[in-house]
Design a protein around this nucleic acid. Structure first.
Lengths: 253, 253
DNA sequence: CGCGGCTATCTTGCATACAAGATAGAAAAG
DNA sequence: CTTTTCTATCTTGTATGCAAGATAGCCGCG
């Protein structure tokens, strides 16, 4: 972060840092985000941190418990279903409205799927999680509609939080296959089929969740434990085995 | 909302006041929103106003020009097309995913359409504008998906801003008919047809816009005129004839 | 040993002070 | 009369200070 003209870097850096931390599953649901810690971490005052938190709150990424603190959201089972339903509606509608796949688009998706394959083979879990979610954002980008891209990015972030809470086991390979099938349908120009496959894919992933088990009955208590005062970084994951009642860390989106 | 303990009222009141002002077309695109004026208007400090502005900015409702001020967004023609495209995708997808219309839902829509008809007959333009947009939010509410409701509410707000900039003439009756047709298809259980009608309806409204004419080439200049220092309220409309290069004030959504 | 209450210390909520950029209007020069 | 320049004033950007609620740990009491 050391720059000659230091400012300008942290205009919306805080916001994006947290979101990208979630998109790559480095930040868990329920993580405490202390204004003070983030402020010292970014070398700014609490004011800017608060503004970033406000923005993230409207995006459904964090929430505030009055006078207690900011936390990364822990979507309930109902929230989870709503997120997947919203994604099915938007992503299927998006694919259904497509008329053609540009050459640049085809190449972008091919490159992406290649990356997925590579991450799958090399076992790079964090990168795989990121890529699995990013696929859907890439598709939104093909539409050229920035509004939908923003919406789907935030929904993807929430999806990843959901899978960290509820995903009992991950079928990354199966999910990758789903992505490939969607791409093939798109390539053949059958966007109706691509939309159907997209819905099936999301259904599949949602079915892989265990939405019956309450994710973390001691959530409130864990919140107060999740950031021991001596820990400096509130953004990095804590590999404390006591908190390992979290489910798998790989998201199949 | 009237509470004996006066506070608590202004937690997110500022945000909602501005949004509802837009939804009923009382606030024009490009309106300056001075932090100081809003602060004194609501009897709070600038801090809270700023937080509300930050939230509204992420919702795509206002934007800030550095060191110059906050303004209600003036969507460009490209923005306008993106908004309508997003709405087509989401609303059609939403209808297509519906399986049944509950009795409560049917009654709610019937009541709404009755209100539209009444406002149309009585010539209550402001109320009509509000209702025309609210119809689509009501449909989203039927899905029970709060995420989609929030998204569509913000898109509707932007739609109303767009129509204030680009709508050359309004066909409120035609638009009301479109709503009725969508409702009829829903009532008959043909949600695929309802989705198609929804797309047609949005196309129709978009076609009614004049997206070729630059909405307001003197936008920057007008911004500086839009709030003469002597005017106390920055939220109420200014019926200054000089700024009447705005198009029609009724939105057909 | 168990339990209740107190206090020290954390957290956010909110207002305020000051800095810096942008603007408009007056004043001055052509 | 026009143009330019300067200054007074307005705007947001940011940090800081203080208040109030929530929490945890200690201490004392039963």
């Amino acid at each position: 972060m050391q720059d000659s003209r230091a400012t300008e870097i942290t205009q919306r850096t805080i916001e994006e840092t947290i979101v990208s931390g979630i998109l790559s599953a480095r930040i868990r649901p329920g993580t405490r985000l202390s204004e003070n810690q983030l402020a010292t971490l970014f070398g700014v005052s609490r004011t800017r941190v608060r503004e970033a938190m406000m923005r993230l709150e409207t995006r459904g990424i964090v929430h505030v418990s009055p006078r207690r603190g900011w936390f990364v959201v822990e979507p309930s089972a109902e929230d989870a279903m709503a997120v997947y339903e919203a994604r099915r509606i938007i992503e299927a509608g998006l694919l259904r409205s497509m008329r053609s796949l540009t050459d640049a688009g085809r190449k972008a998706l091919e490159a992406h799927l290649h990356e997925e394959k590579h991450a799958l083979a090399s076992g790079d879990r964090q990168r795989l999680t990121y890529l699995m979610g990013d696929f859907h954002i890439r598709i939104a980008e093909l539409s050229g509609n920035g509004i939908l891209v923003d919406i789907l990015r935030d929904l993807t972030a929430r999806t990843i939080l959901i899978s960290m809470l509820y995903q009992s086991d991950f079928h990354a390979a199966q999910s990758h296959d789903g992505h490939c099938r969607i791409f093939e349908a798109m390539q053949s120009g059958d966007f109706t089929r691509a939309a159907e496959l997209s819905v099936e894919h999301l259904d599949e992933v949602e079915m892989g969740l265990d939405l019956t088990t309450r994710p973390d009955p001691l959530s409130e208590l864990r919140n107060s434990l999740s950031l021991p005062p001596k820990t400096a970084s509130s953004v990095s994951p804590q590999p404390d085995p006591k908190k390992r009642n979290f489910k798998g860390a790989i998201n199949t989106c």
